[in-house]
Design a protein around this nucleic acid. Structure first.
Length: 273
DNA sequence: AAAGGTGTCAACCGCTCGTGA
DNA sequence: GTCACGAGCGGTTGACACCTT
């Protein structure tokens, strides 16, 4: 039985002097101001000193899970999902431990994500759970590959639209236009500096990762946990953001940004840390 | 268009752990 | 040793946005 049921009141009411429920912008501002001045810690005194009618626990949680300036926000990337899967397999429900490997993510966020995306599946027999996990990993690999190819296509489009005349004239000047066509089946390595459209190979949706190299660009392998997380993170995050900007296509829609994901973003535009 | 179902996430709770007096 | 207190953790809940019928 929840407190709210007992109280019959709902969120935002005051019990024993403490406010509960959703934080208001004003409360956020007070908390941010306090932490800016005094730093984190001593959460119980935050309530008194900052003039908040919130208990220390609530203040800490709000700060850690929502107001901290180093929080990343936004959706979990496929790379982060991979990390979560691997670390959960390793450590189980130790969310805070897992969160330490994902800069800018909170244990609460990871916990919610896990419960939303994987918990139900693990209720089925363990064999099925394993299959589900593998399927998701494969899907991620495909999506990552597709994103990179889309990015490549986009670059190619720009390339074609902007510079095609220039290139053609260059090719004519050098009398080697035909050589590019003849080398199209080879790698795009040192010899083939230019892409031409028919060199792009688009995989069929179900083909996924193809380690035998039969026409696909190799999928960038899912980084292992042991990899340098921070370095890879920046790269993968960059790729992800590219997709976000274009509202990219995500196979199952599970990662499509939702409006309310951003509704409560801290707006400390007047605040500096 | 409306109603019901589902997914997501912020915020709560109870518990445990670490530390200092 | 133990008590009090602060902090942190994992599980759970409620509200609401979104989706489906």
């Amino acid at each position: 039985m929840s407190l709210w049921g007992v109280m019959g009141g709902g969120w935002g009411l005051v019990e024993e002097g403490w406010r509960k429920g959703p934080w208001t912008a004003e409360e956020d501002r007070l908390l941010i101001d306090y932490v800016r001045l005094h730093g984190e810690g001593r959460w119980n005194s935050v309530a008194r000193l900052a003039g908040l009618k919130r208990n220390g626990k609530s203040c800490r949680l709000r700060w850690v899970n929502y107001l901290r300036p180093d929080l990343k926000r936004g959706q979990i990337t496929p790379y982060e999902e991979t990390i979560i899967l691997e670390l959960h397999a390793k450590w189980g429900n130790r969310w805070s431990t897992i969160a330490r490997s994902l800069p800018g993510r909170t244990d609460n966020e990871i916990k919610n994500y896990w419960r939303t995306h994987f918990k139900k599946k693990t209720k089925s027999p363990s064999n099925n759970a394993e299959k589900t996990k593998n399927r998701i990993l494969k899907r991620q690999q495909f999506q990552q590959q597709r994103r990179m190819e889309l990015q490549q296509e986009q670059q190619l489009l720009q390339f074609n639209q902007i510079d095609v005349n220039k290139i053609m004239s260059l090719l004519d000047d050098n009398n080697n236009y035909n050589d590019f066509s003849s080398s199209s089946s080879g790698s795009s390595g040192e010899g083939g500096a230019f892409y031409v459209p028919h060199q792009i190979k688009i995989p069929t949706p179900n083909s996924g990762h193809d380690p035998n190299g039969n026409g696909f660009c190799p999928v960038v392998p899912a980084p292992t946990v042991e990899a340098n997380v921070n370095e890879d993170f920046a790269i993968w995050n960059g790729i992800w953001n590219l997709d976000l900007e274009g509202q990219g296509s995500f196979g199952d829609g599970a990662c499509v940004p939702r409006k309310h994901c951003f509704q409560n973003w801290p707006i400390p535009s007047n605040l500096t840390f």
